[in-house]
Amino acid sequence: MSIFINKETRIVVQGVTGQEGSFWTKHMLDMGATVVAGVTPGKEGQDVHGVPVFHTVAGAVETHAADAAMLFVPPRFTKDAIYEALDAGIRKIVTIADGIPLHDQIQIRAAAQSVGARVVGGNTSGVISPGQSMLGIFPYWIERVYKPGRIGVMTRSGSLTNEVTAMVVREGFGVSTLIGVGGDPVPGSRFAEFLEEYQADDDTDAVVIVGELGGTMEEEVAQAIADGRFTKPLVAFLAGRTAPKGKRMGHAGAIVTGGTGTVEAKIAALEGAGAVVAERPSHVGRLLAERITGGKR
């Protein structure tokens, strides 16, 4: 199977009539995702690639029982769009917006937590369960990356995910569900929050995390392993092991401040808990193979 999304996930696309929204709605449909409705205020009654458009998320939910939202909404309107989805009862939301103000990120995460919802992103490619469903902007047509299989992948980065996942597939594996939590300092959801679902998923044999310098998400994964909350094999690749302190490496969240956020500390935490850390993307597949024996790929 998969986690978070599958064939049954009923998707509403917010910002569906925009250039990106329309383009990726077509791709989500082509990949097999169940997109039931779109939202663009002022354009109710139109359709985009056969998907009916509504003024409001509430309207889309009422008519088509949407239960997940995919946002193609600019960063400064993202908070409003997420509140709208939450208020319409949606509990799975993905935003790819790059540039959500920090204070909005905090409020988005707090609002989602207060109703038990999951927001994934921003600054991400989204979530994909290859062959089943996609809330995001993945090049699923690149077969050497997006092959269905039994490895869960979580990542803070887009292009690097292609690089690392290609190495997983090269070794003969495929992906159950790939979750891009994104590169923001305060992502809506954090690595460790998905581990329980990967643990419970019979079709996920192991998890790969693609992390980087900054923040504490990798340490939280290490803690979950140490606590016994996650017991499947876990291989990590972490970008920024040679990055200097105090420099922001691309992502807003990728910065070492004071003593926290160094890759060195993350490696120590993960290895201390029993996870494996690959020095280079090209090592990930082999390390995975060493820890999975006899299973299907």
Binding site: S157, S159, L160, E163, E212, A239, A243, M249, G250, A254
Partner: peptide
Amino acid sequence: GAGLTTTVFD
């Protein structure tokens, strides 16, 4: 891509 660029840096 930030992660890929940082990886190349490494």
